[in-house]
């Protein structure tokens, strides 16, 4: 899951070297935390959260296959 988000985010930001994704196991499933350069915040969130929402939708496919839940937060 971490790899998917890294791959997508690095391809849409201006500072790919500053993309950090961490994966934690929480009680409800997997928690992904995404950090990017301040300048790239708008690109990963998108208008009305459209970009981050699309990433969450794709994550749900993997989570469903693995029988778990996943949450993605932008820090």
């Amino acid at each position: 899951m971490k790899e998917l988000i890294e791959f997508i985010v690095k391809a849409i930001v201006n500072n790919p070297d500053e993309v950090v994704v961490t994966e934690e196991q929480s009680e409800g499933g997997v928690l992904l935390k995404l950090q990017v350069n301040q300048e790239d915040m708008g690109r990963v969130i998108g208008k009305q959260g459209r970009v981050v929402q699309a990433m969450r939708t794709l994550l749900r496919v993997i989570a469903a296959k693995a029988g778990t839940r996943v949450e993605l937060v932008v820090m």
């Binding site: 391809a11 849409i12 970009v51 929402q53 699309a54 990433m55 939708t57 794709l58 496919v61």
Partner: peptide, 25 residues
């Protein structure tokens, strides 16, 4: 079917992200 999703939502998300990634590059 899993790639289409409810009301084609997964397919739309995949297409939108692909568009952004290709466009940015």
């Amino acid at each position: 079917g899993i790639l289409i999703g409810r009301r084609g939502q997964t397919l739309s998300s995949l297409q939108y992200l692909l568009y952004l990634m290709v466009g940015h590059q």
